[in-house]
């Protein structure tokens, strides 16, 4: 197997006295989509924030292409080739769509390649090309999510961190966004780490998956294996099992505890 592009080892991260990430280790390999699943407050977003340098880890290492990036400032991490598409879009509402997209390439100076990437982004998200001169704040939620992803792509990242791209979108739009995510991965070989609550769509696009609970990784397996695992099915995919008495069992024990 190839060396992982992103290797996180024994990461710990705090919000003041509260330990949000309790020793997480994971790997993302070239060309993969790796998903991290978990409920609210499991620490998924904190994990991404720590990896992308917005939060400083208390312990542990993060290697990007073998180079340590833990403790580096966020802008340095972007320069090293990892971009974070944050939860809730976080676009620049008063700038035009075009300016938003262009800002994604802030750290780059290779004009010709930037122009090519711009065309690539607009070919994946034609709606953004159409609305180039419109203020980004006037876009719909789904379009803003596309803008956030497009903006992230403009950094030409080696690894893209996607935080809940399905947040607040209709099922149809989720489908559309994830189709594009899959295409970007297959056609542009964008390596991604995807954090999701919507386990079904995430496992459908992912190659490998981790399940997080209260700051820890509790399961790690290939996406198909996770999808067929009983625990993931009942706790994240909502599959209900009939018991002998024909009722749903409410007290169920997770096998990982």
């Amino acid at each position: 197997m190839t060396e992982p592009v992103l290797k996180v080892d024994n990461l710990e991260s705090y919000y003041g006295p509260i330990m949000a990430i309790r020793g997480v280790s994971l790997e993302v390999r070239q060309g993969q989509i790796v998903t991290v699943l978990g409920a609210n407050g499991a620490g998924k977003t904190t994990l991404l924030k720590t990896v992308s340098g917005v939060m400083t880890p208390a312990k542990g290492t993060i290697l990007l292409n073998g180079e340590p990036i833990h403790g580096a400032e966020a802008d340095a991490v972007v320069r090293k080739g990892m971009v974070h598409v944050p939860e809730g879009r976080e676009i620049f509402p008063l700038l035009s769509v075009g300016e938003n997209v262009a800002l994604g390439a802030y750290v780059r100076t290779d004009k010709a390649q930037i122009a090519r990437d711009l065309e690539m982004v607009y070919s994946y998200f034609p709606i953004l090309a159409e609305r180039q001169n419109q203020r980004a704040g006037t876009l719909s939620g789904g379009q803003q999510q596309m803008l956030a992803i497009g903006r992230g792509l403009m950094a030409a990242p080696k690894v893209m961190l996607l935080d809940e791209p399905s947040l607040g979108l209709s099922p149809l739009l989720v489908e559309e966004i994830f189709t594009i995510i899959r295409r970007l991965n297959k056609e542009q070989q964008v390596t991604m780490m995807l954090v999701e609550q919507n386990a079904k769509v995430a496992l459908d696009v992912a190659d490998y998956g981790y399940v997080m609970e209260i700051g820890r990784i509790v399961m790690a397996d290939t996406a198909p294996a996770l999808e067929s695992s009983k625990d993931v099915q009942s706790f994240y995919l909502g599959v209900q099992e009939e018991t002998q008495r024909g009722q749903r069992r409410w007290k169920q024990r997770k096998t990982w505890r």
């Binding site: 972007v78 598409v85 976080e90 676009i91 620049f92 802030y106």
Partner: peptide, 24 residues
């Protein structure tokens, strides 16, 4: 100018500017 637009961006959404590699 790129710097000027980055300044606008940083004032509208500091966190996102940070995510885009702008040295806020």
């Amino acid at each position: 100018s790129k710097l000027g637009i980055a300044m606008q961006a940083a004032s509208q959404n500091q966190l996102a500017a940070y995510y885009m590699g702008i040295p806020v």
